[in-house]
């Protein structure tokens, strides 16, 4: 016999619980928002460090320190011309005394320097980072001249920049990990509360022969989708906030770490990645919490 009007779709075994889900959604979305911003920070730091390192490793600075009353500007122009002919050098530009004084102004003030104060002349050298001049080549080239030559290859700045960028990067990644842990803990707590609230469902399923994985599965699915929705909301807002900041304050260089289109696919993958990670963390936290609870209640 076939009764008319049989239900076509089975009802959800775990009914929606909007009163509990809304605050959890908000907390998860905020955590994902913060984690996404931290992720953008890590990606930005990575990108910035690479840019700065590339810039530093493609430049040298040569100082000429004259010890007598020579025409230092002429020496610098002559030395720059010699340096420019070295293999691996793309360009060498002599800076004048005025340029050197401008560099010293933050330390010595704008009142002007005495004419007899020996001010080193600087030569900015752009080199091919893939085939730079041999070490010591510039010193050897200019060694016979009546002035002292100091070559700064920026190595110590490069290391400092890399250390700074690495610190920012690992700090941001640590922040992401802490926020992920916080999200997991919050969701595990919520999953336990949800299980306690709907223990009747778990018990009924258990008593009709549902294995733990079946019971766990319905809670896991519920929290996966809750985590996904919260993740999309939080990561979406973070992407908007990051974009707005990068094109507002960021355009002036005030927030270098925020994503700008130049950050590329890494940054573009952070928002959907954070949403998916949020869903997976939520599902895993719910699974562990519910499995533990079932084993505790039914040893």
């Amino acid at each position: 016999m076939s009764a008319p009007g049989k239900p076509r779709r089975p009802a959800a075994l775990l009914p929606p619980d909007h009163a509990r889900d809304r605050p959890l959604f908000a907390v998860a979305a905020i955590l994902v928002f913060l984690a996404s911003l931290a992720g953008f920070g890590a990606a930005g730091a990575w990108q910035a460090a690479e840019g700065w390192t590339a810039q530093l490793s493609s430049e040298l600075t040569v100082q000429l320190i004259a010890h007598d009353a020579r025409d230092a500007d002429a020496d610098a122009v002559d030395a720059a011309a010699q340096i420019a002919r070295l293999p691996g050098v793309i360009e060498a530009t002599a800076r004048s005394r005025a340029d050197a004084e401008a560099l010293l102004r933050p330390w010595l003030g704008g009142a002007g320097l005495p004419d007899d104060l020996p001010v080193p002349r600087l030569i900015a050298v752009r080199i091919d980072p893939d085939a730079p001049p041999a070490p010591g080549a510039i010193e050897a080239l200019l060694g016979g001249n009546p002035y002292e030559v100091v070559v700064d290859d920026h190595a110590r700045w490069e290391a400092a920049v890399q250390r700074s960028a690495g610190t920012v990067r690992y700090f941001a990644l640590g922040l992401v990990a802490i926020l992920a842990l916080a999200a997991g803990a919050v969701i595990a707590f919520a999953a336990r509360a949800s299980l306690a609230a709907r223990w009747d469902v778990a018990e009924a399923l258990h008593l009709v022969g549902a294995p733990d994985r079946f019971v766990t599965g319905i809670f896991q699915r519920r929290f996966f989708f809750l985590g996904l929705k919260a993740g999309l909301a939080g990561a979406g807002l973070a992407a908007l906030a990051g974009y707005a900041l990068a094109h507002g304050a960021g355009a002036a260089g005030a927030v270098f770490f925020l994503p700008v289109p130049a950050l590329g696919w890494t940054a573009a993958a952070i928002a959907p990645g954070a949403a998916l990670a949020s869903a997976l963390i939520a599902a895993l936290a719910a699974r562990l919490a519910v499995t533990g609870e079932l084993k505790a209640r039914w040893p």
């Binding site: 239900p7 089975p10 009802a11 009747d200 009924a204 008593l207 009709v208 022969g209 079946f214």
Partner: peptide, 23 residues
Amino acid sequence: RLLEHLTVFDNVALPLRVAGQAR
């Protein structure tokens, strides 16, 4: 121990659903 959010039909079908039978 009937589940309040399920219809009578779904409550009765629960053991079969848990056993993985098609509706």
